[in-house]
Write a protein that binds this DNA or RNA. Structure first.
Lengths: 155, 155
DNA sequence: TAAATACCGACTGAATTACTGGGTTATAAC
DNA sequence: GTTATAACCCAGTAATTCAGTCGGTATTTA
């Protein structure tokens, strides 16, 4: 798994789309403005997202982008994989022709971990993120807290 | 959170160290040979790991590296953070002076997700990985399966 | 017809990756 | 003590990726 700033941009843009796309299509210009990402870079990202059917573009005036499926059907892993490309983790590519036994054991361990990370991100959908935040916001509104939530940083 | 190939190299090297360091110190030359990582690059990685007390170097002939603490006390997040540096996720840096409300909401969502990923990786230790693999190997030996485990890839 | 938008591709500076090569210490073995 | 072995340190660097600019074309609405 690869989790770079590029993936972050893509997730951020998709979140923006999920949040603002309820009423109609969202233009890349709007997302660019909202999130501080250059328009042309967004175009590159959305070309990748579109090829994986995660978004759907509508041309012409009043056009823009819709989510390609419902927010609940789009996982974070989907988004990251779309823009970051799925790289081969181990150099031996699954073939057990590594020099030593230690090498391939390590590679297997890493491969298992990568799969776990992937599954973790595959279990979180765009819809989840949006709902979780709304719930959280209600709780905060109840207590009328002014203190930011940065105190909950752990480990 | 940032999960790049650099972090992968570091985790791989630490795994190698955990596996082979039972009897004595492991040299970078050995890890380089085992894992196919250049010696000087390993030196860079281990300089970072050492500064975080994740490894302990012993100079001179017969020297090499030990784990800085027990494998159970070293999390994957520790390793990745040591070499990849902890980058600021949001551009607004926590300050709520973003242009629009949508921007900061998206940033909050991304920030929460990042924290979750971090906590996930902070919960997995080197020791966990090694033990899990040993368990798995026993299971495989029981069924004498030839089929690789790549069929469990999900979406 | 004109404007707005997605769509497309080539190019580019900056950063990062992964590596090379030149050292200098510390220490164990001889 | 000398020497070999290792960690340690630092400067440079080709290749790649990141994030962006620029200049277009295609489609659709007004």
């Amino acid at each position: 798994m690869r989790l770079s700033t590029k993936g972050r941009y893509a997730v951020t843009a998709m979140l923006d789309l999920a949040l603002n796309g309820k009423t109609g299509p969202v233009t890349l210009a709007e997302i660019s403005e909202n999130q501080g990402i250059s328009l042309s870079y967004l175009e590159q990202l959305f070309a990748a997202l579109r090829s994986k059917d995660l978004v759907r573009g509508v041309r012409g005036p009043g056009g823009g982008y819709y989510l390609g499926k419902s927010a609940d059907e789009i996982s974070i892993a989907n988004i990251i994989c779309a823009v970051d490309e799925w790289v081969e983790f181990t150099r031996c590519g699954g073939r057990q022709n590594c020099s030593g036994g230690a090498r391939c054991l390590t590679h297997t361990l890493w491969d298992d971990l990568s799969t776990e990370i992937f599954n973790f991100l595959a279990d979180i959908s765009l819809g989840d993120l949006v709902r979780r935040n709304l719930n959280k916001k209600e709780e905060e509104d109840d207590s009328l807290s002014i203190v930011p939530q940065s105190s909950s940083q752990a480990a």
